[in-house]
Structure formats: structure tokens, C-alpha cells
């Protein structure tokens, strides 16, 4: 008898609980069911906007940056391969602007054509060629950082970066003497931490050298990478 009562009770309770379960699913499913209303609601755009706003991870207000760079040079004297090692001192006025001074030391070697010409000249088949190698240069630059972004390093870390444009001028020491030089270019600075930065840069540099007794205008493309330390 007791068992029968339990069975009768179960017969009511189980379907009831199942129907409650079914009711919840149905209730959930019926939310947002009116397609016409949905369409009408979507047509209204109150122009509310959500955005991500973050502080810069690395403070660049009135900060000094010391950096070392290595650059490879394309263009210029066709008989020489030139690269440079540089040191940079940059003063960040704010995250948008900085002013800096740069020093580059150049190392030169004969290019393939230069080696061929030299060998040919030694063999007496052609006259020796003249070149005016770069020795070192000093530049003052002003840099503008208009574009920012951030990088996701394989989901391990996030680093912010700025794309910048730079322009400047200075003095270049050649074998023949000193000459003025100017530069402009663009690059990307990645701020790895509060004290470490890295830069990748492409810039144009122009100057006049002297070959035999003639002045010659040279256009260089300098591609460089560097690592810096923010004080």
C-alpha cells in the first residue's frame, strides 16, 4: 500500500518536475521571439558606444631613452657595402613627441662590383676607382608618434607600440672631410617594459661626398634595429 502511494506520488511529481524543466526551456526559448519587434528595435540606433580605454603601460613623459642600433645601408656608393653601429639618446617630451641625438660609426667593405673593379685595376685592365667612405656621423632628430597599437605575443604577453616619423640633420665625417647630412624616415617602437624598448626603423639619409674632385650627391636607405633602455 505504501509502495502504491509512493508510485502514485511519483507519477505526479516526476511529470511535474519534467514539465517544470520543459517550462524553463520554453520560457527561455520564447525570449526575443517576435522578429518584427526585433527588427524595429535594431533600426533605432541611439549611438551608444563602448570602447576599450587603457592607460599607457610605459610612461613616456619627460623620460630619457638610451639605445643602441645596428643599421644596414642600401644605395650610396655602388662600390661599397656599408653598415653602421649607432648610439641614440632620446628625450621623450610626451608620448607623442621626442627629440634626440644620434651617433653612427660606419664600417665599409668592397661590394662585389667594387672588388671586381679593384682586382681589374690591379691587373692593369682598368683604372683604380675613387671612393669616399663614411666614417661617422652625428644627427639631431625630432620624432613624432602619431599611431599607437598593441601586440599580442603568442598569448603570452601584450606590448604596446608606436609608429613614428622622424626628421633631422647633422654632420657626416667622410674620408674627404666633413659634410652636412639630413635624414627622414619612419619606424616602430615597441615598449617591452617600463625600462626596455626596441625599435625598427627605415630612413632616408642624403649627403654629398667627393669622388676625384667632383662632388656627388648620395641617397642612402638605412634599415636599422635597436634596443633601448628607458631611464
Amino acid at each position: 500500500m505504501k509502495l502504491l502511494k509512493l508510485l502514485i506520488l511519483a507519477a505526479f511529481v516526476v511529470p511535474a518536475s519534467l514539465s517544470q524543466a520543459g517550462d524553463l526551456q520554453n520560457d527561455l526559448g520564447s525570449l526575443g521571439g517576435n522578429k518584427d519587434i526585433l527588427k524595429r528595435a535594431r533600426a533605432l540606433d541611439p549611438k551608444n558606444r563602448l570602447q576599450v580605454v587603457q592607460n599607457r603601460l610605459v610612461d613616456r613623459n619627460f623620460r630619457l631613452e638610451l639605445a643602441a642600433q645596428y643599421g644596414s645601408i642600401a644605395g650610396g656608393d655602388p662600390y661599397l657595402n656599408t653598415d653602421n653601429l649607432g648610439a641614440q639618446l632620446e628625450f621623450h617630451i610626451n608620448p607623442r613627441w621626442s627629440v634626440g641625438a644620434r651617433y653612427y660609426s660606419y664600417s665599409n667593405s668592397l661590394s662585389t662590383e667594387g672588388q671586381r673593379r679593384a682586382d681589374s685595376a690591379r691587373a692593369g685592365r682598368e683604372p683604380f676607382f675613387d671612393s669616399d667612405s663614411a666614417i661617422q656621423s652625428y644627427l639631431g632628430v625630432i620624432t613624432w608618434y602619431p599611431i599607437y597599437g598593441k601586440l599580442n605575443f603568442f598569448d603570452w604577453s601584450v606590448a604596446q607600440f608606436d609608429i613614428y616619423a622622424l626628421a633631422g640633420g647633422g654632420q657626416m665625417e667622410l674620408e674627404s672631410g666633413n659634410t652636412g647630412t639630413y635624414t627622414f624616415g619612419a619606424g616602430i617602437g615597441i615598449w617591452l617594459s617600463q625600462h626596455v624598448s626596441t625599435r625598427f626603423e627605415v630612413r632616408y639619409q642624403g649627403y654629398e661626398d667627393q669622388v676625384y674632385s667632383d662632388k656627388r650627391k648620395l641617397d642612402l636607405t638605412v634599415v636599422s634595429a635597436g634596443i633601448g633602455f628607458l631611464l
Binding site: 576599450v52 587603457q54 601584450v158
Partner: peptide, 19 residues
């Protein structure tokens, strides 16, 4: 000193709590 990025469905781990 503030960076603004558009809000998208893609979640960046550093953006939580920066909306």
C-alpha cells in the same frame, strides 16, 4: 597617456576591466 581601442568580440587579456 590613454590608448583607445574599438570594442570587439575578440577578448584581449589586458582589456578586461578597461571598458
Amino acid at each position: 597617456n590613454q590608448l583607445k581601442f574599438p570594442y570587439t568580440s575578440e577578448v584581449w587579456l589586458d582589456e578586461l576591466d578597461s571598458y
